[in-house]
Design a binder for these strands. Structure first.
Length: 709
DNA sequence: CGGCAATTGT
DNA sequence: CGTAT
DNA sequence: GCCG
């Protein structure tokens, strides 16, 4: 059965239950994992009074009732209704309105949870009541004079949330201890009060300023902003023990990682920086080296000198013939221009985080072309000769090379430095590395939720995460920072193969992915499992296999288990929907399992124990179960790299009008299956893949030459 | 100026 | 919108 | 961002 750790060690959810919608738990293989729900935060008297305040929180401000009539009615005497405190007493005798907020300190509204309409109405009502209003906007919450505001209205229920929302607005506070005198609050300019919107609704309802006491959620004292930062947006020192524990765990992991694999912590140092996303302004680089006239770029004397040697170099075929698709050229794992490629990869990642699919495609193309280039690039004009590289790439190279002609390790590009220093990039990247969080979600975490660290995600968002995201966070460091050495990848593959074979004899497997392309270390293990008897690849065998691996402890969590969930219930044969045509006979679907894995054998060299406890690093393992009829395409499709795969599909479409996928090749017009990739008698999986490649009219490049970056 | 790989599961 | 290559 |  599924095993669970007794507790997740990254917690932090001691917030009140009503703060966030309950996460919808999936009734799946693994039960909900989650932090222990602590309720240890002592409620301050201020907080306590808020929680005993009026119950209603349903009405939005604008829906209460005609606000303007309340504000503009002038026929009743100046408001002096029931005040037990001096906080809002309208000493301005000349105030013509019942509802005058003249005596309030500068007011701002916390936009969170308020509809745009509600927010708008609230602003109008408050300014109609002569409040000294500091406007806020839900988009970014930033306003120049937000720091003037001392009184915040918001749909906020807990002090913790209040402090968090203030921080999002750039207002850094710490909660004021119980017993601060009420009188002090208005006098002391360093104090911030957060009051529920209900207070204002009540004022409107009663046509007069009401006591704020029952509605106060939070009183905080202004503190210094983040050290070194620009004074906005920075994590509170919250849930400190948990953060510290995480740190310790991370350090342990990294120490072990170095021991294991010689891996190093590649995380960028935290340097506060300016925003990295710029408006659509053309950079000076663009103007100087714009794509319009790249060929006119002046060569410096030194570039010219360096290039003289070029004439003697035999240019590779893909350059001579301008072969633009990665399937037509060899891409070794390492190449002479890896340092420059890494710069391009940073830009590509920033495009990913900006949801710029086209930028991703463009940089991928350039990267793979350079990866295929066998000589060290010495001049930007050489780059112009590579397919997929043009003015922009060339300009980037020019800046990069000349920033330090004599020391490769010192070369840099200003725009890339700025990307790497920007908080937005660093934080979104950190989120993006959570398994189950893509670019869209990473942006949402950063821009909409206002989170700035994994600890924020854990503390404020844990219950909003999907189950796989929770698992992704739980194993964040292991997944991202402890690479899997080749021998361990081989060991995992062999073990899966062995267990499969024990269940039913006759299975064969091949490890695909980066391992097969020759990587010394892998981020995960990908493998294609196959049986010559098609029946053995159906009927839920993969579920059976994963279940067995769970029982034996190897599989600790199942992130995804597709197809064949029910025994024999699966009738494959839906055509690729994009073309609305039926598959021909023998339509195939690949079953896939994505799991977390942990070494269980104490005798294994990859097993690690501490205090009698198995602390072997968890590994990501993908198992693809293929019928014999398409195992060739499965192996080809799961070996990659990404750009190779994309270009493979483009080639198949362009050359043959077929559609390629890992489950087979199809005629686009008729939807009929093209018989390629069937596992032939006496043939191994590598030979089978080769027949597919050659059947598609392509030169066979071994996997080690498909490293398209 | 249009196109940029392609699939499935939740 | 997430995942894989 | 590059290509046809």
């Amino acid at each position: 059965m599924q095993r669970y750790d007794s507790a997740i060690d990254m917690t932090g959810s001691d917030r009140d239950e009503d703060e966030l919608p309950e996460h919808t738990k999936e009734p799946t293989v693994a039960g909900p994992i989650g932090p222990h729900m602590h309720h240890k935060r002592p409620l301050s008297p201020v907080a306590a009074s808020s929680s005993s305040g009026p119950p209603s929180r349903s009405a939005s401000p604008h829906s209460v009732h005609s606000p303007h009539s309340a504000i503009h009615s002038t026929d009743s005497p100046p408001n002096s209704a029931g005040h037990h405190d001096n906080t809002t007493s309208p000493h301005d005798l000349g105030a013509p309105l019942d509802l005058s907020l003249l005596s309030l300190p500068p007011v701002a509204v916390i936009p969170t949870r308020l509809s745009p309409e509600a927010l708008h109405d609230l602003h109008e009502q408050l300014s109609a009541a002569n409040a000294d209003l500091v406007t806020t906007f839900p988009s970014d919450g930033q306003t120049a004079d937000i720091h003037r505001a001392r009184f915040f209205l918001g749909q906020i229920n807990t002090p913790k949330r209040a402090a968090f929302e203030l921080r999002k607005l750039g207002v850094h506070t710490e909660e004021v201890e119980a017993g601060t005198s009420r009188e002090a609050v208005w006098q002391d300019d360093g104090l911030i009060t957060v009051v529920k919107v209900e207070w204002w609704e009540k004022c409107l309802e009663k046509d007069g300023v009401q006591s704020i006491n029952p509605y106060i959620v939070y009183v905080g004292r202004l503190t210094e902003g983040p050290p070194g930062g620009d004074g906005k947006k920075r994590a509170l020192p919250s849930a400190e023990e948990l953060v510290k524990e995480r740190e310790m765990k991370r350090r342990r992991i990294l120490e072990r990682a170095q021991g294991d694999a010689g891996g190093s912590d590649s995380r960028v140092k935290v340097i506060p920086g300016k925003p990295w996303t710029k408006p659509n302004t053309t950079t000076s680089v663009d103007e100087e080296f714009g794509v319009k006239r790249p060929k006119l770029m002046r060569k410096t004397t030194s570039e010219y000198e360096r290039e003289k040697g070029l004439a003697n170099q035999v240019q590779p075929r893909y350059v001579r013939e301008q072969l633009k698709l990665a399937v037509h050229r060899p891409h070794p794992l390492h190449c002479p221009n890896d340092a420059f490629i890494n710069v391009l990869k940073t830009i590509k990642l920033s495009r990913t985080l900006q949801l710029d699919d086209i930028g991703i495609r463009a940089y991928s193309t350039a990267i793979s072309a350079i990866q295929a280039y066998p000589y060290e690039l010495l001049s930007s004009s050489t780059l112009l000769t590579l397919p997929g590289c043009d003015g922009k790439t060339s300009a980037l190279f020019y800046e990069w090379y000349n920033s330090s002609p004599d020391d490769v390790s010192q070369r840099k590009i200003q725009a890339v430095e700025e990307i790497e220093q920007s908080e937005e990039y660093r934080v979104m990247k950190e989120f993006y590395q959570i398994w189950g969080v893509g670019a869209k979600t990473a942006r949402e975490f950063y821009l909409d939720k206002g989170w700035r660290s994994l600890d924020d995600v854990i503390e404020f968002g844990w219950n909003q995460l999907s189950r796989v995201q929770q698992i992704g966070l739980k194993f964040y460091d292991e997944i991202n920072f402890i690479p899997i050495p080749r021998p361990e990848v081989a060991r995992i593959g062999a073990l899966v193969g062995k267990v499969a074979d024990e269940l039913r004899p006759g299975y064969e497997y091949i490890i695909t992915g980066g391992y097969r392309r020759g990587k010394e270390q892998s981020g995960d293990v990908d493998m294609v499992l196959c049986h010559r008897d098609e029946e053995q690849t159906r009927g839920g065998f993969l579920t059976m296999l994963v279940t067995r691996l769970e029982e034996e402890g190897w599989v600790t969590h199942t992130l995804y288990l597709g197809r064949g969930g029910g025994f024999g219930t699966q009738r494959v044969g839906e055509p690729p929907r994009s073309h609305g045509l039926a598959h021909g006979e023998g339509a195939e679907e690949l079953e896939k399992a994505m799991v977390m894995w942990q070494e269980q054998d104490p005798a294994s060299p990859f097993y690690k124990e501490e205090g009698g406890r198995n602390v072997s690093p968890h590994r990501r393992v993908d198992i693809i179960l293929s019928p014999p009829s398409c195992v060739g395409t499965a192996v080809l499709g799961w070996t990659g790299g990404t750009t190779y795969e994309r270009d493979l599909r483009r080639w198949v479409e362009k050359r043959w009008g077929w559609k390629f996928d890992s489950g087979g090749v199809w005629e686009r017009g008729s939807g009929r299956r093209v018989e390629l990739g069937e596992w032939a008698e006496g043939e191994d999986l590598v030979q089978c893949e080769r027949r597919v490649i050659e059947g598609l009219g392509l030169e066979y490049f071994k996997p080690e030459l498909r490293n398209t970056g």
